[in-house]
Each structure stands twice: as structure tokens, then as C-alpha cells.
Design a protein around this nucleic acid. Structure first.
Lengths: 340, 340
DNA sequence: CTGTTAGCGCCTTCAG
DNA sequence: CTGAAGGCGCTAACAG
């Protein structure tokens, strides 16, 4: 590999001049510039990015850590992040942790020192982990709910949706339709978003004076298959629910497919509500009623916050994104009501 | 940030000694070693990985480029790759190109210089692109079919499955069951795997003396939704096929779901065959008959090839993985036959 | 065994 | 406007 010195020699100029024509850091006479350019292509010179980063003390790489990249919610968010950061000259390294603390930690460990910024949605990661694996000069944006220790050392941004409020609103919608026997297919146990959505579910029922039937609280993990399995369990019960709220769209979609496969009609026999509003939700048949909290927006906002911080902002930013319930075709009043 | 020099000063030793205790490159007396270790933790010293990489002339990062990370086939492969490379001290940067040449190129561009190895499954990328974006000292393993130009400069490894043979075998299975009207839901147009599987499909029909009905050649793009849409088209025809071969499992799964949703029974009314044997295939109802070419194996073999190359192997390696048809519950003789 | 020293490849003052 | 020289932080010979 040719070095900048080889180019300088070949062009008969100094390394400084070569550096200037490459980076446009200073005016160079057209003649010299031309000679340098020729030398560069003659030698197939490519600047060594490591050396450049070391010297400039900046790396054009940022990392994005999400729970499950095969979930369209996250792949969509990833794309949104890249759209923003690309424009500012940063490339993104994406990691899918599959909900495993070990992978969250391992990834941070492996990229630490190679990146100048980090966007992450922690599942199990705590404040301590973050503080110990991420150096202070790394810009950090946290996505979603995350326990921030008191007197936390990290100066990090924080962008989140309203999991509790969104869940409550979704269930309120079901209750308003007349449902009283409402099931919940949950998110992964122990995760912030999972427990907040569960809390919202409970609140909605309680403030409507309805009992929370624990047998209608089905475990899940945000995958399509969990939705399938969950709905199969529910529909096999003696007194199946008339509506089910799923902690995310992917499970709702799976639930809907499985319910239909088992010969039930949605929403006539079973109303289904999701959470997120991923792209597929509106294309499902029937289109899915869901809590809109689009990944594009979250990704964009997070990426913009990160770029700002990379550009020198110091004050931490803490932002709550709004949500709304989008009523589509997968919800309707329960059959009993209809017949009265 | 503390540097190695700060540590040396703090411990009252030379930088070389510090370097040696960090890297274990030479014996250091227990006493000094202890002093160094203390200095390190006192100063919260973390070696600068950039500087280390520059000096050692090796980067512990490799890149993996796949068409669509939200497809379980690829996320599974990614995991297999990481399992292997982790053990050898390399971290993996994954990129999903979404089948876009622009993204293939852009990613290569952005990681070039930051990685010491590369595993990729090109969709549109040509030999020239690769040669121009990847420096000669980068180890490269190519996955799948890829046109290798004559007199190619790149010294690259090549691991691939047998797309054509696998497709042919799958269709042969359908033919052996007695199907004569067989549809094909295709892969993304213009991609190597897509066209090879189509070729295999054609060959099977032709060597059985069956006509290829172009109206049964449905476009697809390896997504679940394409499978759904494709089967809906097919089942809406005047003379629907009795069997459909899908260019990958995800489409086959989508096709099966949609067929069932529309009230058809699989395999009684429609036999379905996939390609890949992803994890979900065996768990579908009915379990999917498919061409087994497991992503774990491909990922592992590719990663091992890369590591070997990183360790100095020079001769290019060119390997064809074997496949087999796994007959499960989604295929059966066509109804007409049964009744005779 | 330990310390000194010369790079790794690039950027960046700072004279001229 | 150009070039010489020092430094980014670390590793690796090579003396001692």
C-alpha cells in the first residue's frame, strides 16, 4: 500500500501539500494539485483511515444496539438512523442483541474505542455496564425506558416513547368498544418496555373497574411466533377473551394469522390491537389497529440528537415522543354486545 | 484519557514494560507487574485501540454483508459467523443491503480500511466493485453464486450452495408426487440465487417433459409478504396449480399462511415447498417440506475460511456445499391423483 | 528482564 | 503557498 509519502515523492511535493489537496484544508496551486492527483491515481493511493483517525482523534463510526434486528420495527429504525448519520459522514455499525445481556455487553466491549457515538435500546443493560464500557468522550443516546441511577456519571441523551400511556390508550379503546374480557400477550419478561406496557394494560382495566384475570396474561417475546402461540392458547380456553392486546405489532400480526388459521374471524370473533405501527400493520388483512409510535421517527430523532452531541452539545437532552391510537379494521365490539 | 506513558510514569517503569504486562508479550517480574496493574486501574487506563491497530497493522474487525438481515436465514447465518470469529478475537460488523447495489457499495466504501476481513453475499455487486473498494490485503470470502471475471485480480474464497441442483431436486419431488401444474414464486429479479433457482425449476419440468407455464412464474423478493401475495394470485386463477415451489422458506411460509387464511388446506389443496430450511420451517403447521441448506453451516464454513485466510492461507478456496430435500408435511400428491 | 528508541501513516502547526 | 518537523498512542526491535 502506498503511503502519503510515496505520493509526495512521486509528485515532487511535500506530504503537507498532498494532505492539503486530499482534505481541502488549504489552497494549493492548480498545477501542484494536478500533479498530486495524478500521483494518487498512479499509485492507487488510499489514505489509511486508522492513521487519520488517530491523528485527528475522531472516528467516523457510530454504533447502534437494538434487541432484535429481524423485527421490522428495529430494522426500520436502523434505516432511519443511517439516513441521518450518513448525511453527516458517519457510518453505522448495527448490533442485534437478541435480548441477551451477554450480547449487549460483549458488543459494547468490542466496539468501544472504535466508535465516536452510540445509540442503544437497552434490555438488561444497566447504568453501571454502560459507564464501564463506554468512555466518557463517547456520545451516547439511549432509546426507551432505562433506569437512570441517581447521581449518574454519564452525560447521555434519552429519547423514549410512552409505553405505559400507549398501552393504556390501546386498552381503553377496547374497553370503549365494550370488551370486558381482554387478554394481553406480553413482551419479554424483565424488559423495560415489556413491564411498562403491562403496567399500562393493568391501569386501563383497573380504572375501568375491570378485574385483571391473570390467566389472560400470556407470556411473549415480541416475535411473530409468540403471537401465534399466545392466541392459540387463548382460543383454546373455556372462556376465551373477546379481545387481545399484543405488546407489539409483530405478535399482533402473528396472533391474527393464527386466529384466522384456526377458523376465527377478526375482528368479529376476536379483536386484536398491536403496538408500534410497523409498516406491515396497515397492509395486514384486516389492517391492524395499533398504537402508533413509528420507528422512523424514533430513529431520526435519536440520530439527530447524537449528531448534535457529536457536534459539541453538552447539556443532556431528554425527550418523550408522543403516540396515538390508530383504529383500523382489527377491532370491533364483541359479539355479545352486537346481538343485544 | 490516560496514555501508556502516563501509566509508565505512575508506576515508575518504562512504556515497554507496561506494554508487556498488557499484552503478555514478555515475562515481567511479579512485583513490577503488580505496580503496573495498579497504575492502570488508578488511572483508569484503557489502551487506545486505534493506535494499537496502527502499530500492529491489524484490525480485529471483520464485516459481513448480507441482503436482508430481517430474514431469519441471514440473521441465523450472522450468528454462526460471529460464533466462529469471536473465538478468534474478531468482532463482526454486519450490514444489510436490502438488495440495493447502492447500499452494497456504500457499505464497502464505509468500512474499507476499518476491517481486516470481509464475508459477503453479493446481489448486484460485480467483480469490479469489489476490486476497487477492497484493498488487496483484505481477506475476502464470497457467499453464493457470483460471476468471477476471467483473470480476476482478487484472491478470494468462494463458498456456495447448489441453487440450481436444489431447486431441481425440490421440483422433482413435486413431480414424483404426481403434480403437473407447478407454480414458482421467484426470488428477486437479477440476483444470482434467484436466477439459478429459476433455472433449476425449469430444468426439472423440462426433463420431466412438462411445459413451463409462464403464468405460473410469479415474481417475488424473498419476503414473507411476497409469498402471501404470490399464492393469492395463484389461487385466484381459473386453473390454479396444485403445487407451488417457493424460492425460499420465508415466502413458502407466507404462502402457506395465506393459502390457509383463504380457506385452502395444505397440502391437500396445495403442496408447498421452500428452500433453505430455516428454523421456522420445521415448526410451521404443517411442517414445511424444503431444500435443506442450513444457514448455520454456510456461516460457519465461511467464517472458518476467513479466519484461515486471516492466518495466512494464500491459495483461494472454492467450496460447494451439499443440500438435501427434507420432506415434511406440506407436500402430498395432488387431489386428482388421490381419487383415482 | 527492563528501558530506549524508532517507527506505524497521517495531520498540523510554523517558519520561509 | 510550500515544506520541514513534531506528535497522535502504541508496539517492537534492540541494547543493556
Amino acid at each position: 500500500m502506498a503511503t502519503i509519502r510515496d505520493v509526495a515523492r512521486h509528485a515532487g511535493v511535500s506530504v503537507a501539500t498532498v494532505s492539503h489537496v486530499i482534505n481541502g484544508t488549504q489552497y494549493v496551486s492548480p498545477e501542484l494539485r494536478e500533479r498530486v492527483l495524478q500521483a494518487i491515481s498512479a499509485l492507487k493511493y488510499r489514505p489509511n483511515r486508522l492513521a487519520r483517525a488517530l491523528s485527528r482523534r475522531e472516528v467516523p463510526l457510530i454504533a447502534l444496539v437494538v434487541p432484535d434486528i429481524s423485527n421490522p420495527y428495529w430494522s426500520c429504525l436502523a434505516r432511519a438512523v443511517q439516513d441521518v448519520t450518513d448525511r453527516h459522514g458517519y457510518s453505522v455499525i448495527v448490533c442485534s442483541t437478541d435480548g441477551l445481556l451477554q450480547r449487549e455487553v460483549r458488543f459494547l466491549e468490542s466496539v468501544s474505542g472504535w466508535i465516536s457515538g452510540l445509540i442503544l435500546h437497552p434490555y438488561h443493560l444497566t447504568h453501571e455496564h454502560l459507564a464501564s464500557y463506554v468512555s466518557d468522550d463517547t456520545a451516547v443516546v439511549i432509546l426507551g425506558d432505562f433506569l437512570r441511577a441517581e447521581g449518574a456519571s454519564g452525560n447521555w441523551d434519552h429519547i423514549r416513547g410512552n409505553n405505559e400511556g400507549g398501552a393504556r390508550a390501546a386498552v381503553d379503546h377496547l374497553i370503549a368498544l365494550g370488551h370486558t374480557r381482554i387478554a394481553f400477550i406480553q413482551g419479554p419478561p424483565g424488559t423495560p418496555s415489556g413491564s411498562r406496557r403491562l403496567a399500562g394494560f393493568r391501569q386501563a382495566l383497573e380504572s375501568a373497574g375491570l378485574l385483571v384475570d391473570d390467566s389472560l396474561l400470556i407470556p411473549g417475546d415480541y416475535t411473530r411466533e409468540a403471537g401465534r402461540a399466545g392466541v392459540a392458547t387463548l382460543l383454546g380456553m373455556e372462556h376465551p377473551p373477546t379481545a387481545v392486546f399484543c405488546a407489539n405489532d409483530l405478535m399482533a400480526l402473528g396472533a391474527m394469522e393464527e386466529a384466522q388459521r384456526l377458523g376465527h374471524q377478526v375482528p368479529r370473533d376476536l379483536s386484536i390491537v398491536g403496538f408500534d405501527d410497523i409498516d406491515e400493520a396497515k397492509r395486514a388483512r384486516p389492517p391492524l389497529t395499533t398504537v402508533q409510535q413509528p420507528p422512523e421517527r424514533l430513529g431520526r430523532v435519536a440520530a439527530e440528537a447524537l449528531v448534535e452531541r457529536l457536534n459539541g452539545r453538552k447539556e443532556p437532552r431528554d425527550e418523550w415522543l408522543t403516540f396515538s391510537v390508530v383504529v383500523r379494521g382489527s377491532t370491533a365490539p364483541p359479539v355479545e354486545r352486537r346481538r343485544t
